[in-house]
Design a protein around this nucleic acid. Structure first.
Length: 185
DNA sequence: GCAGAGATCAGCT
DNA sequence: GCTGATCTCTGCC
């Protein structure tokens, strides 16, 4: 499997969100490998997107959204959950990222069950904070390079068939934009 | 099967 | 202080 090059992320955030579907997210912990196929994403842009963390400008938390593309933006929310994004934008924007909302477990399922402390495979990684817990993604992975063989990266995956788009989940502003994308596997 | 509370951090209207 | 790109547990129908 080839790691997706940085140029993949240097395009319109919305297109990158669509194209990340079916790709493989890989977490390396020592010699252990945990991986899954990306099945749901959301695009978050900049000044044209009131739902984006970057909308109100740069803060300590979101600063990687303004930095190099292909980098992991991990943020802590609701006092107990981590969510993971891939920084992606075209040249016309100063910030942008793609939230990974859901994956289909592939390698290391036993490890994920242990991390999540549940036995239901269906609920293992079907939510943004669930998959970070299953893959042990924390602020340690903040700023990790997804375009290199690192502790967290993304490779080519399966071919996608039909992509469906909907309003994004859990936001109040920007619900007119259909920037939530998913596929059936 | 579904509604509501609780957990408790970073960044504000 | 309050609100949120969330999840889990509880209690009720």
């Amino acid at each position: 499997m080839k790691v997706l090059p940085r140029s993949f992320y240097a395009r319109n955030t919305v297109n990158v969100a669509k194209d990340l579907l079916g790709k493989t997210l890989i977490r390396k912990i020592g010699s252990k490998i945990i991986s899954g196929t990306i099945t749901e994403t959301e695009a978050y842009r900049y000044k044209d997107d009131p739902a984006s963390h970057a909308f109100r400008g740069l803060t300590g938390r979101n600063k990687v959204m303004f930095g190099e593309v292909g980098i992991a933006y991990v943020y802590f929310t609701y006092g107990m959950h981590y969510c993971v994004n891939a920084v992606a934008r075209s040249k016309t924007y100063d910030a942008g990222a793609v939230l990974i909302r859901s994956i289909k477990p592939d390698q290391g399922i036993n490890e994920m069950v242990k991390n999540r402390k549940i036995d239901s495979i269906a609920n293992l990684t079907n939510g943004p904070a669930k998959l970070t817990q299953a893959m042990q993604i924390t602020k340690m992975q903040y700023g990790e390079d997804l375009a290199k063989l690192s502790s967290l990266f993304i490779t080519e995956g399966i071919k996608t068939r039909k992509i469906s788009s909907s309003p994004r989940i859990g936001i109040k502003n920007g619900i007119d934009k259909l920037w939530n994308f998913k596929i059936e596997i």
